[in-house]
């Protein structure tokens, strides 16, 4: 294991171990993660389904619930990753000083940042599975390809946990979390998560295409409906690129804060 490992070493898995141990005593928070997808699917899916009716997606007619479910999955993955990285990591970074003690062990700053990403991914793995199971049970899965939404949700979590990790290093106090919400809410509302991007004027659609949530929702929708095209490779690549840049920024900022 060389110190030059740009994104951390195998030791980062210790952070995963640590978080699992600490959150074991906060199991209620973990259980709530299972209910979130159900709430999304029941409220927006079933509720709006009757009002909106069916939609045409690339020549296929699908119910609104089927159309919106992958968008909700993407949103749920984003929220989960952001809560974990922005809020919880901020607390450990600047309030409880958890990392200060950790860095007196062989762990490096990059291991700590990467470890928090592992944790977000572990949670996304569990929540993603439960969300997709709910989709299938409620008849909102567009095809058997929906199983690909699972790695898709994990990829979404990867991108947003890295963004969140970088963002949390800029948070100075609890008030600054309003700024995070200020970014997260329009991202949720304008990323064509619950209607097709074709409804937007061209110029707005072009802006929206930069939204990682839009790319994720489109990717997951393609998976759920079993409609594949080359754009999906670009979408996935975009999310990976965001993750790499975010993690790099996060590691550098962590280093400045923790080992000045």
């Amino acid at each position: 294991m060389t110190r030059l490992a740009l994104f951390g070493t195998r030791r980062s898995l210790r952070i995963l171990e640590r978080n699992a141990l600490v959150y074991r005593s906060q199991w209620l928070m973990l259980v709530s993660g299972f209910f979130e997808p159900l709430f999304y699917l029941l409220s927006i899916g079933i509720g709006l389904n009757h009002l909106v009716g069916d939609l045409h997606v690339h020549g296929r007619v699908v119910s609104y619930a089927t159309f919106v479910a992958p968008g909700m999955l993407a949103t749920s993955a984003m929220n989960g990753a952001m809560i974990d990285t922005v809020f919880n990591t901020f607390f450990k970074l600047k309030i409880s000083h958890t990392y200060d003690a950790l860095l007196s062990t062989p762990l490096e700053v990059t291991d700590v940042a990467l470890g928090e990403v592992w944790w977000a991914l572990a949670r996304a793995t569990v929540y993603g599975a439960s969300f997709i199971a709910c989709m299938a049970l409620l008849g909102d899965a567009g095809s058997w390809w929906v199983v690909l939404c699972w790695p898709g949700a994990i990829l979404t979590s990867l991108a947003f946990s890295c963004i969140g990790l970088a963002a949390c290093t800029y948070v100075r106090s609890w008030q600054d979390f309003d700024l995070v919400t200020l970014v997260q809410l329009p991202l949720f509302l304008f990323s064509a998560t619950f209607f097709p991007i074709s409804l937007y004027p061209r110029w707005l659609g072009a802006i929206v295409s930069f939204s990682p949530l839009y790319q994720s929702a489109s990717l997951l929708r393609g998976f759920s409906l079993g409609q594949f095209d080359w754009m999906m490779v670009i979408r996935a690549g975009y999310l990976v690129a965001i993750a790499l840049v975010g993690l790099r920024i996060a590691s550098q900022r962590f280093r400045r804060i923790l080992t000045p």
């Binding site: 110190r3 030791r11 640590r18 600490v22 003690a101 062989p106």
Partner: peptide, 27 residues
Amino acid sequence: TDGPDIRRRLGVVAQEDSLELELSVRL
């Protein structure tokens, strides 16, 4: 260059305890 190898052989007691308050003493 050898941070992890050095820290493996050191014990550090910083000014702040920064213990895991939610966990037991043993954990």
